[in-house]
Amino acid sequence: MKLHWKKSQLIWSYFFILPAFFFFIVFRLYPLLHVFVLSFQKWDIQGAKWIGFKNYEHLLNSQLFGMAFWHTLLYTVLVVSFWMASAFGIAFLLQSFHQKIKNLFRGLYYLPHVTGVVVLSLTWAWIYEPQIGLFNHVIKWAGGQPVMWLQDPNLALWSIILSSILVIPGSGVILYSAAFAALPTAFEEAAELDGANRWQKIFFVFLPLLKPTTLYLLVIYTIAGFQVFDRVYLMTGGGPVNATTTLMQLIYLTAFRDANYGLASAQSAILFFAVCSVTFLTFRLLRVDFTYQV
């Protein structure tokens, strides 16, 4: 079909998207391009100087950067797999309930999401407090030794991961529930007629049918996982002994404590490529053409 556009109509169309694109170009696109430029510079208060790949070389040899990368990866893999499993599992279990109970539980799981990470992290820091916090309170009452949840370098990262996975991701539960509700019952009935048991049904009926939702959540959660910052910053500040330093925490410190903006940009660029390649791989592995439909 050959479309014929009227000029005044066109002007109106572009006028409607103009404000949105103005902000996109200025505050999203430009900084994104600038990050790569900065990563080849030594950038300080006096000005910028091109130094080629020096920042990247520095990162290759930096033990701290390696640690931060590993912590981020560990956090992402563990938290995302727990989130995916629990969101799917709970949505699946909720399926058999009456609509009212379903709504009640979905609301409950969604509440922490409304609360926001800052409040959750402040509260978790308080729960983990070594002398008077809730967890050690309970441990002491049960006759155990106090645990240094956030002060012990061997434990701190695990405590942060625990704080993430204990709170069921309400967004995932709601998306999966909606997807379950939208499934045509015919498939399930057919599987039951064929004598499929519960697990077979999950693996051969539900999981394939819910693939778009899974892919979508996986990508979104992975991107969020790689960028974990708020809870690390608020609960440990990256310590003790850098045991919880994640990439974003390191970027924050490099840029805003050490005033090394070039190096921080190189770290950001690496984070960017890591996220992009993981996202790309996820799309390839799950082989779904992403149709903006959730």
């Binding site: 701290l64 002060q151 370098p153 003790p240 005033a259 090394n260």
Partner: peptide, 20 residues
């Protein structure tokens, strides 16, 4: 001393206090 090395030094001291 650059703040990066200062922070590494501080982390080293802290690791002793924490028995690492």
């Amino acid at each position: 001393i650059s703040s990066e090395v200062t922070s590494q030094y501080n982390a080293a001291i802290q690791s002793v206090l924490l028995g690492q």
